[in-house]
Each structure stands twice: as structure tokens, then as C-alpha cells.
Design a protein around this nucleic acid. Structure first.
Length: 526
RNA sequence: GCUCCCUUCGUCUAAUGGUUAGGACGCCAGGUUUUCAACCUGGAAACAGGGGUUCAAUUCCCCUAGGGAGUGCCA
């Protein structure tokens, strides 16, 4: 298998060719950054770049609905990766019911589409459950975990009671010290972690600063389910250790988990990784985009016609900025990005801004590149067969020729496809309402008068056509618009289109004259 | 309920113990123009509220309100 480039969207020459700051591109900055707030003290770990291994998790069970905070974070991870760290991908599929092949494939597909590549092969967590069980057994043997026989009903009653009394929620520790001899027969126990009751657990988070939890508020979580399968909480800790993960960057919905995991690491005698909890992204309406609520998957954004580069630019700006920079090239992103500059407040997803960015990238992208994006996109659209049929074999070349005028006006690839429709329309065109009106208001007469002039244009080029139409307008005392608009209507069937001379040229002499004749009723070569 | 996090134009954000609080998207007006875009010029638009600290607070501290996350034998 070919080695995967560390970052697909890295410019030629790779990260080393980039203008990175000296030896430590993302050195722990600034204790000065938050000088006066003790709550925001940053960790002072000495980072060794060549062994930084970032953790890109893709939890299958919350899969697509929660995709955005993941994508957001992954963009950031990818940028870190470009600084020399490795981005490892782990599929957290410990929840068997929800981890379907289709869900996993959709995630990997989405990542590839976004051009966010990872190092090495993805690690499938479930495949390592034997190892996870071993660790649970060790904890049990060391008295750091215990068997719990509580039934779901009892657990629910505990939670209700805790809430009613306003006390700490969660498991009350009934079986923590209970004599195992009292275990009910025929009930398979879950294994729970014996978490510390006293003191506090402190996380030195690269984004959130120092966050302190009282241990009494963290209950004895389950390590092994009663069917013997390991839970996420256990698996993550073991895998972080085994994969030698140094940095965990994830959504801040995991902040509490970081505390639990820290306790586990301590119990195991292992060092916890450095955590960086990124704020979540909200929907356009401010509603949350959590796994319990709806949100679009990454493939939906592809189908809406957004460019990966635009999405990356948009996403990286959510919660992060570099002065007034808005359009940020990949090179700049890599040179400027730092975890510490990420804000701690959640951001809303704003389609208008994404569109504007997407339009910018479209306008500045080489025509051929846009065509290849289009080719990749069309099969994913609902009416793919229809579109493909209309474009036909030679349509792509025509599309590319028309691209300079088309891309100027489009916000998304889908817009672009729609506005390119006139290229593939079959004669006679059926003008839409506005176009029909343009033709009715004396337009047909104008076109009929123009047709002979146009027929005589040689060669059929933008400059020649423009000269012809302009002189016709002047000679017949018409404003250019009075000629151009009916022409547009006849040629494209719409009242808006790319520049009319471009349209004329791209369509070609025969097709263009034919379309005009269709509307005037005149023979084509009159 | 309990724990943790957050709060600058509508949105994303910048800056600062003393500023006309900056930029971008969006919006409005004008310009350019063969349409629509793009582009140019201008405009409206924000420091959640209340207390402190201070000569001075948007900035530091506290409280309140509002928002978010967690609170699972989900991840």
C-alpha cells in the first residue's frame, strides 16, 4: 500500500517547505497570554515535536449527526499534524449496536472528501476489547475496581433519589464495599471503577485552562458491562496508552470524561495525555448540534456543492482567528494555527458566510479543477443520471470553456451546475417567465433584425461578436441592453446568464443562430 | 436538581485599564455594468445586567441573568 501523505492538502514540498517559526512551531506560548488569571494557567509540558501523536477519534455511535464538532476539530488536528505531529485515527466502535459498516464507511468517506488524512491505518477499538478486558481484570485484582450487581431499575431509582435530594448524581456505590457473598445468584455483574471519594481531580486543558472537579461528584463508572464488553471509558484510556497518544483534542462535551479518564490513568499508574477541549458548534438557529439532536452529515455539505477547501477555511475560523484574516490559505493555516488561540465559547454555524467563502474559492479556482470537482460531485446528487445524460460525453469540455463566466457567478457547485444548464438545453428552448417577457417586449423584432448581422460574423469569437452587436445597437439606435437581454433570453431561456458574448461564443455559431431563429421564427440563415 | 464551561454588532471574531471599540459575512444606499454576480464607495449595527477595585473599566473581581455541556452497563 502506498504511504499516505501526511496531509493531502499540503502544498507541494510538504510541511518542511512552509514558513514555520523556528524550532518549535507551536511552543507552549504565553503564560503571558492569561497572566492574571490563575484559572487559566496553562500546562508547561515540554513538548517534543517528533513524538507528538494526536488523537483523531471518530466515534461511530454518534456518527453523522454529531459530525460538525468532529470535523471542526479534525481540521485543527490536521493542522497540528502538519506541524510534525501524527494524526492517528481511531474508530470508537465499542457500542456494537450502533457501529454498522455503513456508518463507519460514511465517516471515512467524509474525512477523505474533506481531504483530512490520517497517519497509518485506523485503529478499530472493538478489535482490541480483549486487551481492554485484561486491564479491567488487573484493576479488579488490585482492588481498584469491583463487581456491581445493581439492576437497571435499582440504578434508575438511585438517580431519581440523588436528583430529588440534590446530592451528587450517579451510582451511589452500593456494591463498592458490599460483601461479594451477598451477590444475587444468576446475575452477571458489571465491573465498576472504584473512583476516589475525597479530593479533587484537576485537568490542565490547553484550551479550557485549569478545570477542577470534586471527586465526590464523579461516580464509579462502568469499566466492563455485564456481558463482559468494555465501555468507551475504559477502552479510550487503554488505547491512548497503547497508541502512545500525547494529545487528545476533542469536543468539550468530553470535559467531564477527561476527569474520569484522568482518575483511571492514575489508578493504572500511567501518564494521562494532554487534553484540549474544543467548544461545540451550534446550528444556525443557536440550537445545539449534539448527538441527541439533528445535524447534517458531512456528505450533505458535499451535496450542497461546497468545496472542501472552503469548508476547511470556514471551520477553522469558527472559534479561532488570526487577526483580521478571513480567507486563509492552507499554508497560512498551518503557519498560524495554535490551539491556545481557540476561544472557549461555542459558535454558530452560518451558511451565508460559508457560501461567501465558497464563492471566493470557486472564483479563484482554475477551470479544469472545478470541472473535476463537478465530475466527482454529480454522482452523489439525487438526479445524477439525468444530469450525466444531459452533459453527455463532450459536455464537460463545453462546461470548461464556459467556466470563466460561470464560476464568477456561483456560490456553490450546485449553483454552477444550474446556471450551466443553458449549455445543454435542447432546441427549441422554452424561455422561463422573465425571459418570455423580454422576448415579447419587442425582443423578437430586435432579434430578427440582428440575426443577419450575426450570421455574417467571421470568425465566431467574443471580440467579433461584441463588435457586431454593439454596432448593430448603435446603428439601429438601441441601447445595448435592449439587444443583449432578448439575446440572452433566446440563447439561455433565462433573464440572467454569464456575459452574453461569452454565451454566444461557447454555444457556437450553429447552435446560437439556431436558438435565435427558434424564437424569431425566421429561417436560420436568413 | 447537581457539576463544569461560556457571554463584544444579527453571525464569526479583533483589540484595549484611557480607542470615534476594528475586520469579515449578512443587511441598506450609491457607483460600475449587456443581465446576474463580482468589484468600488458609504451607512445602520455590539462590549448581557448589577455591584465592586481604580483617577479611569468593555478590559480585573463578585453576584445575577442567559446559553451550552455532562450527569448511561452511549460515545
Amino acid at each position: 500500500m502506498r504511504p499516505r501523505p501526511s496531509l493531502a492538502w499540503l502544498p507541494r514540498g510538504g510541511a518542511s517547505a512552509l514558513p514555520l517559526p523556528a524550532s518549535r512551531p507551536y511552543a507552549t506560548p504565553s503564560r503571558e497570554r492569561f497572566p492574571s488569571s490563575s484559572q487559566r494557567t496553562l500546562p508547561v509540558q515540554d513538548l517534543t515535536d517528533d513524538r507528538d501523536r494526536y488523537h483523531a477519534i471518530c466515534a461511530v455511535s454518534d456518527g453523522l449527526p454529531a459530525y460538525w464538532r468532529r470535523a471542526h476539530r479534525l481540521v485543527q488536528l490536521a493542522v497540528r499534524q502538519a506541524h510534525g505531529g501524527k494524526m492517528l485515527l481511531r474508530i470508537e466502535d465499542t457500542d456494537r449496536a450502533r457501529s454498522t459498516d455503513a456508518a463507519i464507511a460514511a465517516i471515512l468517506d467524509g474525512l477523505r472528501w474533506l481531504e483530512l488524512n490520517w497517519d497509518g491505518e485506523p485503529v478499530y477499538q472493538y478489535a482490541r476489547s480483549e486487551r481492554h478486558r485484561e486491564v479491567a481484570e488487573r484493576l479488579l485484582a488490585e482492588g481498584k475496581a469491583y463487581r456491581c450487581y445493581a439492576s437497571p431499575e435499582e440504578l434508575q431509582a438511585m438517580r431519581d433519589k440523588a436528583r430529588a435530594e440534590g446530592g451528587s448524581p450517579g451510582y451511589d456505590g452500593t456494591w463498592r464495599d458490599k460483601d461479594p457473598a451477598l451477590a444475587p445468584v444468576g446475575v452477571a455483574p458489571a465491573i465498576r471503577f472504584k473512583s476516589p471519594r475525597e479530593g479533587k481531580t484537576v485537568i490542565e486543558d490547553r484550551i479550557q485552562g485549569r478545570v477542577t472537579f470534586a471527586n465526590k461528584d464523579l461516580d464509579d463508572f462502568v469499566l466492563l458491562r455485564s456481558d463482559g464488553t468494555p465501555t468507551y471509558m475504559l477502552s479510550v484510556v487503554v488505547d491512548d496508552r497503547d497508541m502512545d497518544i500525547t494529545h487528545v483534542v476533542r469536543g468539550d462535551d468530553h470535559l467531564t470524561n477527561a476527569a474520569r479518564q484522568t482518575q483511571l490513568f492514575e489508578a493504572l499508574g500511567w501518564d494521562a495525555p494532554i487534553y484540549a477541549h474544543v467548544p461545540l458548534i451550534h446550528g444556525p438557529d443557536g440550537a445545539k448540534l449534539s448527538k441527541r439532536h439533528g445535524a447534517l452529515g458531512v456528505e450533505a455539505y458535499r451535496e450542497m456543492g461546497y468545496l472542501p477547501v472552503a469548508l476547511r477555511n470556514y471551520l477553522v475560523r469558527l472559534g479561532w482567528s488570526h487577526g483580521d484574516a478571513e480567507v486563509i490559505s492552507t499554508e497560512e493555516m498551518i503557519a498560524w494555527f495554535n490551539l491556545e488561540a481557540i476561544g472557549r465559547s461555542p459558535a454558530r454555524f452560518d451558511f451565508a458566510k460559508l457560501e461567501s467563502l465558497n464563492g471566493h474559492y470557486l472564483r479563484t479556482m482554475p477551470d479544469a479543477e472545478i470541472v473535476s470537482h463537478l465530475k466527482a460531485l454529480v454522482p452523489h446528487l439525487g438526479d445524477a443520471d439525468d444530469i450525466l445524460g444531459r452533459i453527455g460525453n463532450d459536455g464537460w469540455a463545453k462546461l470548461e470553456r464556459a467556466m470563466p463566466g460561470l464560476k464568477e457567478r456561483a456560490k456553490t457547485l450546485v449553483d454552477l451546475l444550474e446556471s450551466a444548464d443553458y449549455l445543454f438545453a435542447e432546441r427549441p428552448l422554452r424561455p422561463d417567465e422573465k425571459a418570455a417577457k423580454l422576448l415579447d417586449d419587442g425582443g423578437r423584432e430586435t432579434l430578427a433584425a440582428l440575426l443577419p448581422d450575426l450570421s455574417a460574423v467571421e470568425p465566431w469569437s467574443v471580440s467579433g461578436l461584441e463588435a457586431c452587436v454593439r454596432s448593430f445597437a448603435e446603428r439601429t439606435d438601441r441601447k445595448l441592453g435592449k439587444v443583449a437581454q432578448p439575446l440572452r433570453a433566446a440563447l439561455t431561456g433565462h433573464s440572467t446568464s454569464p456575459g452574453i458574448f461569452d454565451v454566444l461564443e461557447v454555444l457556437g455559431r450553429e447552435e446560437a443562430l439556431g436558438r435565435i431563429a427558434d424564437q424569431t421564427g425566421a429561417p436560420e440563415n436568413a
